[in-house]
């Protein structure tokens, strides 16, 4: 991201911070969900966009985070903030194990292993009824108010600000990460892993680390979703969601962090609009997805920034 885009992003964050004063409650609900999904898609971008680790099972992170925070809120009386961050941390720790196993393979086999682990968790969510509620899931998840005056976060608007703060914080973390020496190695793995190994990097450690961070942030998104929706169910671990989040990343523009957030918002908007016209909305969204892959592989953010840069060039070279 060039320095010229920084003011733009600050403006966007300010607009989002002011949104509750202008938008009706219904729109706030949609916006909150879009930000949660945006966080989820951005977390996958660390793996998919920056490291070329294609995960077919990122729903594992989302679902695990959702079930963990839901369970903590339902059964331990833990305050909202602790439950959410505790669940994200737990997801990250579990992901070290998942990452360790999946990185035994590369390429398509890696992707299949991520899918396998997600499906494993999906199966567990059905069978481990005493904890997960089986096919009913966890319902009636409360937003338990916490100490230190964090009670304000449990209201509808307060929760929106919690989500926004998590998204902005996670974005800054990812941004620092991809521009650090660690991020340079990730790009090396993306462009030529064999060469990265030959330079003396233990690439597997880097891959496990990025999987852990991506899952922890994906888990954070899920951990926010459970108290947002008030429930957690098996769909949050289903492969369909893994596919949808990949689509959000690609349509938004992979390897940009901002793009996948836009992709998630675009996906939600399309789902909302198209499904009010037709039941076969997924078919039409599929066509849109194909069009993006064929004609705009750089995604929404790539198109937008490309246009900006062209404009600046034209102005610079103009009369």
């Amino acid at each position: 991201m060039s320095a010229a885009l920084r003011p733009l992003l600050i403006v966007v964050v300010l607009v989002l911070a002011l949104a509750p004063f202008g938008l009706p409650p219904f729109a706030m609900t949609l916006l909150t969900e879009a930000l949660i999904l945006g966080l989820f898609a951005m977390s996958l971008d660390l793996m998919f966009g920056y490291t070329r680790l294609v995960s077919f099972g990122h729903a594992a992170a989302y679902g695990l985070g959702a079930y963990a925070s839901g369970w903590l809120l339902l059964h331990t009386g833990m305050p909202l903030l602790f439950a959410v961050f505790g669940a994200a941390l737990l997801t990250g720790v579990v992901a070290i194990g998942i990452g360790w196993m999946c990185t035994l393979a590369t390429g398509v086999s890696f992707s299949m292993l991520t899918l396998a682990f997600a499906q494993l968790l999906y199966a567990i969510s059905f069978k481990w009824t005493s904890v997960t509620g089986g096919s009913d899931g966890l319902a009636g998840i409360p937003r338990t108010p916490g100490p230190f005056g964090f009670a304000a976060l449990t209201s509808k608007i307060g929760f929106y600000y919690l989500v926004l703060a998590c998204l902005v914080g996670a974005f800054l973390l990812c941004f620092a990460l991809v521009r650090s020496p660690f991020g340079a190695v990730l790009r090396g793995i993306r462009e030529n892993e064999a060469k990265t190994i030959a330079l003396g990097y233990n690439t597997r450690l880097y891959k496990i680390a990025v999987v852990a961070v991506a899952y922890a942030l994906g888990g954070l998104a899920g951990a926010l979703y459970a108290p947002f929706a008030g429930f957690a169910n098996t769909e949050l671990l289903f492969w369909l969601l893994s596919g949808q989040v990949l689509i959000m990343v690609i349509v938004g523009g992979s390897g940009t962090l901002v793009g996948p957030i836009l992709g998630a918002a675009f996906f939600m908007l399309m789902e909302h609009q198209l499904s009010s016209w037709t039941e076969a909305w997924a078919l039409y969204f599929g066509l849109i997805f194909i069009a993006f892959v064929l004609f705009a592989p750089q995604g929404i953010w790539g198109l937008a920034t490309g246009r900006l840069q062209m404009g600046r060039l034209r102005r610079a070279s103009g009369p």
């Binding site: 020496p181 340079a184 790009r187 030529n192 064999a194 060469k195 990265t196 030959a198």
Partner: peptide, 17 residues
Amino acid sequence: ALFPEMSARENARLAAQ
């Protein structure tokens, strides 16, 4: 065997790193 999208400087820097 190089990192084609990185500049020559970035290639060499990643090696030194």
